[in-house]
Design a protein around this nucleic acid. Structure first.
Lengths: 206, 206
DNA sequence: GTCTATACTACGATAGAC
DNA sequence: GTCTATCGTAGTATAGAC
């Protein structure tokens, strides 16, 4: 049996210090197991890294399954329902980015974005692609005047607004003149994000 | 004299592998100097890291000085001029995020966002704050119906749309179904970003 | 000021006891 | 399966030649 804590600690340490910076010794110690168990279960540091990526992807897939199914249904319905579903999905994503629990695995993903490895392929395929596909479909439904590329670009930019809440956390705090993104500030940000999304998606067709 | 290449290489290596992951040996070797020159000039690895952060901040400040002065003037003028200036500034920022040259220092900053250290303080104060302040002032001018917090939140979310072009590069490529963000794709993204910003900033006041 | 040489610590991997 | 012990390598820092 793989020690339960090993993967959680691995995600945290790899996210914090990067692949080269994290040490299997410390991960093992913090997991309450021997370093050689990493070799045994994962074949080495690289194997552990990949397993950590899949661990994250699994958690995301698990958590998004419900909201995603509901949103997907809305992509077939009327336009305003699709807009509402998209705004709700984005808001949920923003909420996740605001929660402290997202920090460890978000750090991991952010690193992979900068210099993608095989780990990103697994993160994408298992955790991120399902969300992205639904997102794109909803944008396409909300803005039938858009071509495929434009819908994809818009989905990305909408994502960006939520992602900066985690990936640009330090700047966000400075910009908003707060020490941490507390609940009040988070609510304000989410309200603005919803308004922005609504505005972008409902723009009168020219 | 500090070897000219040392700081550039340091930014690249620290950005690529993080503080713990990067090695002073390799930085020194790639800079064509001895490892001990790092100790001499910067007191050690940590000193080099801080110097690299200030190096980045200086480059940003230098590059943004011109556009910023022009945009600042617009913040005093009529509302539609402020909107145009803001959209232009954001587009320039997006263009920078799209260019390959931004990768090394953007990686460095992204890392600092996740787990800020003293280096982030210097990055912010010298490089990022001037841009952010101008941005906020322009948003406030464009949307006089906003309170201060709302203007700041909106500025952040606008930033997010540009930042994801670099900070979420891997996802962007997957989502847009391209190998790299070439000029055509970049132009499409910038066009959508401008449209989104225009829509958010010009929304009819209720 | 810039180099070489070296001291010391921590790394990942592996072998082998249990 | 999980542990301890150990190997070889690479890390930062420092002392001292020039």
């Amino acid at each position: 049996m793989v020690p339960a804590r090993l993967l959680d600690v691995a995600v945290e340490r790899f996210g914090e210090s990067g692949f080269e910076g994290a040490s299997t010794r410390e991960i093992a110690r913090a997991s309450g197991t021997a370093m050689s168990s990493i070799t045994y279960h994962f074949g080495g540091k690289e194997g552990l890294y990949l397993a950590a990526a899949e661990h994250i992807a699994g958690k995301i897939a698990e958590r998004q399954a419900g909201p995603l199914a509901a949103a997907q249904a809305a992509a077939e319905g009327p336009r305003d329902k699709a807009v509402a579903a998209l705004v709700g999905l984005l808001d949920g994503f923003a909420q996740m980015m605001l929660r402290a629990e997202s920090a460890p695995w978000a750090r991991f993903i952010m690193r992979e974005q900068q210099t993608p490895t095989e780990a990103f392929e697994r993160l994408w395929a298992k955790g991120m692609k399902p969300v992205a596909d639904t997102f794109i479909r909803l944008v396409a439904r909300a803005r039938p005047d858009f071509g495929d590329k434009e819908a994809r670009a818009t989905a990305l930019l909408l994502f960006g607004q939520a992602m900066i809440l985690r990936g640009g956390r330090a700047s966000a705090c400075k910009l908003l003149e707060v020490e941490t993104l507390d609940d009040d500030t988070g609510a304000l940000l989410r309200a603005r994000l919803r308004a922005n999304a609504l505005c972008i998606l409902s723009e009168t067709q020219r």
